[in-house]
């Protein structure tokens, strides 16, 4: 049986860390006992062009890891905005990296959040953390996964000598979360009673 699903596409330039954004979600979903698939675009387009990854999270088995019309899209650059903004399903959520994307969506059937991720990340120390800021904002806007669960997964990406970067990134993610006004935040998308119960 297919369960409750959340389909997310994250897109941007190669080097903006969009693959990591998807993997953060995937790790957190797995640890929450959910089913998850992470599917990258691959090949030359990873090298500086547009890159994207698709994350599907579900309470049941995931049939297709391929998504044409996502529930949630994250556009880290303008080409991604142009490509995925029209594809978000009605009542879906679009997050836009407004520091780099001047465009505005004209759709009225979706919730659009303009997140100055790069600007915020720069203020916190380095623009490199823009992706993590955006993950925090996405957690707030969609309720996909709890903030602390996502923060916990940062350790996978900063091992060994890079471990000291975990704390600044935790902070960046929390800042991102805070960028979404309280009244716009989404409740938990998945009712995770206890980890492991929902895997089947």
């Amino acid at each position: 049986m297919l369960g409750r699903r959340l389909e997310i596409i994250i897109a941007g330039f190669g080097g903006q860390g969009v693959m990591v954004m998807g993997q953060l979600l995937a790790y957190a979903a797995m640890d929450a006992g959910l089913q998850v698939t992470w599917m990258p675009s691959y090949g030359p387009e990873q090298r500086g062009g547009t890159a994207n990854c698709t994350v599907v999270i579900s309470t049941g088995d995931i049939a297709s890891p391929i998504v044409a019309r996502p529930h949630v899209a994250v556009a880290m650059n303008t080409p991604s905005f142009e490509k995925f903004e029209p594809r978000v399903v009605p009542h879906g959520v679009l997050l836009v990296n407004s520091t780099l994307v001047p465009e505005r969506s004209h759709r009225t059937d979706i919730d659009v959040f303009y997140v100055p991720a790069v600007e915020v990340a720069a203020k916190l120390g380095t623009e490199k953390m823009a992706n993590v800021v955006m993950v925090g904002a996405m957690a707030a806007a969609t309720g996909a996964l709890p903030l602390n669960a996502l923060q916990k997964e940062l350790m996978h990406f900063f091992e060994g000598p890079k471990e000291k970067l975990v704390e600044p990134n935790r902070r960046a993610m929390r800042h991102g979360f805070g960028l979404i006004p309280r009244e716009d935040r989404h409740g938990p998308y998945f009712v995770v009673a206890s980890a492991g119960d929902l895997g089947a």
Binding site: A26, Q35, T37, W38, M39, Y42, I62, P65
Partner: peptide, 10 residues
């Protein structure tokens, strides 16, 4: 195929 090779799944 490319999907199974490239995707992540638990």
């Amino acid at each position: 195929d490319g999907v199974l090779g490239q995707m992540m799944e638990p």
